[in-house]
């Protein structure tokens, strides 16, 4: 598997660390359900998903990668620092 780092270009999966679904962190007082959603419950789609990867064997950038979990097709990647909603 290869991922397109916006800074370094396409690189082998070996260079990256995977974290999982790209979700927005709730406010501290958002309540139990919101935090349960953020830390534990998952959409876990069989299809396109937005997920966080870390280019730790490269530039150290956190990326938001859009990828298909059925085919492993990579649709795109952007820097997490810029993707923040």
């Amino acid at each position: 598997m290869r991922l397109p780092c916006p800074i370094c270009g396409e690189r082998d999966r070996r260079e990256f660390y995977y974290k999982g679904a790209a979700l927005e962190r709730p406010a501290p007082d958002a309540g139990e359900a919101a935090w349960d959603d953020y830390v534990y419950l998952r959409e876990n789609p069989a299809g396109d998903t937005r997920e966080l990867w870390y280019h730790d064997g490269g530039c150290g950038a956190w990326l938001v990668v859009t990828r298909n979990t059925l085919t492993h097709a990579v649709i795109g990647a952007e820097l997490a620092s810029e993707a923040k909603a």
Binding site: Y17, K19, A22, R25, L52, Y54, D56, G60, A61, W62, L79, A80, S81, E82, K84
Partner: peptide, 17 residues
């Protein structure tokens, strides 16, 4: 050590850029 470095990068870049 590695885990913390990754964590700091994560917190900075995704939560408080």
């Amino acid at each position: 050590a590695g885990e913390v470095m990754r964590h700091l990068d994560f917190v900075h870049q995704t939560l408080c850029p």
